[in-house]
């Protein structure tokens, strides 16, 4: 779908921060509140804006630390539907947070989150490997999150170092 420059501008503002009031977006793109509201509705209806989640650093919350693993999966594609069938069987599991088809040494890349390591181990051995067409799995546990979706986690050293007033 081809978007107008104004629609692209609204998208880009929302991508940075979707909590910004629609009144302010209207000022930023030199448009009316009604027009911006309509643009946002259209983008939502078209599923271009898919959802508005918050990016949370759960590792800072006691009792909420998650274990994250990335799993490389090799599968045999099925005649007619390719990888789509097996992908669907995998992404339906709620513990799977992302799933991509990849080029290279393996086919599917899965991100999975669980409370404990054994929970993830159980998913791999009981659910994932037993799916027909899954040939092999390699599981990598994530040790630390430095940057996610363009956002740097942890201490931000990029504070404003400028003088208060300058010519």
């Amino acid at each position: 779908m081809r978007l107008s420059s104004e629609e692209l501008e609204v998208l880009s503002i929302l991508e940075e921060n979707h909590r910004i009031p629609v009144e302010d977006i209207a000022l930023m793109v030199n448009s009316s509140v009604e027009d911006v509201t309509a643009i946002i509705k259209k983008l939502e209806d078209e599923k271009i804006i898919v959802s508005y989640p918050a990016l949370i650093d759960w590792s800072k919350v006691v009792g909420k630390e998650n274990i994250v693993a990335m799993i490389d999966v090799k599968v045999t594609p099925k005649r007619g539907v390719g990888f789509d069938d097996v992908a669907e069987r995998i992404y339906r599991f709620p513990e799977v947070t992302s799933l991509y088809l990849m080029s290279g040494a393996y086919d599917l890349s899965i991100t999975i989150e669980g409370k404990t390591m054994s929970e993830i181990a159980r998913f791999v051995s009981e659910k994932l490997s037993t799916i027909d067409n899954v040939i092999s799995t390699t599981t990598h546990f994530m040790l630390k999150k430095y940057k996610h979706d363009g956002v740097i986690f942890g201490e931000n050293n990029d504070r404003d170092r400028r003088m208060v007033v300058s010519p």
């Binding site: 404003d160 400028r162 003088m163 208060v164 007033v165 300058s166 010519p167």
Partner: peptide, 25 residues
């Protein structure tokens, strides 16, 4: 520079939001 005097005043106050900076953020 006429800015100097104002700089001294602004720098002495805490919690200032500055729209006085002549350089990129």
């Amino acid at each position: 520079s006429g800015i100097r005097k104002f700089f001294d005043l602004a720098a002495s106050i805490k919690g200032v939001i500055s729209l006085g900076v002549g350089e990129p953020d």
